[in-house]
């Protein structure tokens, strides 16, 4: 009987779900979506690389670049907190899903917050480029 009441009420309500992905997901501003580098600030101290619990980051001082395996990153915010120059920031929206193993490379040659996408050989899964060549 009590269920009948709530069923009737639900019948005249608007749906609570949204038509994702046609409608953008309503993420709160504080959401930990993905990490971004503002490379002009980076001093290549490698603290982010060392603190990352999943070894998702590799810092390359010679090439002035930061490589991140998005599939590995668990958005724990540790790298954002450890960075002495506030180079890394966490943005609310998620990165796009990949169809093949890729890494995102932020480098000083690119504008801040921009990255290029590099494809890894098939079957690399969420390995970093250096781990792939080690195989």
């Amino acid at each position: 009987m009590s269920m009948l009441r709530s069923s009737l009420r639900n019948l005249f309500q608007r749906p609570v779900t949204t038509a994702y992905p046609n409608v953008q997901a309503d993420l709160p501003q504080s959401n930990r979506g993905r990490v971004m580098w503002e490379m002009s600030k980076c001093i290549y101290c490698r603290r982010c690389e060392r603190v990352c619990p999943t070894n998702a980051i590799s810092t390359n001082k010679e090439a002035k670049s930061q490589t991140i395996v998005r599939n590995r990153c668990i958005t724990c915010n540790a790298c954002v907190e450890v960075c002495p120059t506030q180079t890394i920031s966490m943005v609310a929206d998620y990165s796009k899903p990949d169809l093949a193993p890729t890494v995102h490379i932020f480098s000083a040659n690119l504008p801040d917050y921009n990255f290029r996408v590099e494809h890894l050989p098939r079957g690399s899964g969420s390995r970093r480029p250096d781990e792939v060549t080690n195989d």
Partner: peptide, 15 residues
């Protein structure tokens, strides 16, 4: 779930 997302930044793994 939405509330914990707003407080901590994630729905499941609050960290």
């Amino acid at each position: 779930m939405r509330l914990v997302n707003e407080i901590s930044g994630n729905r499941v793994h609050y960290s």
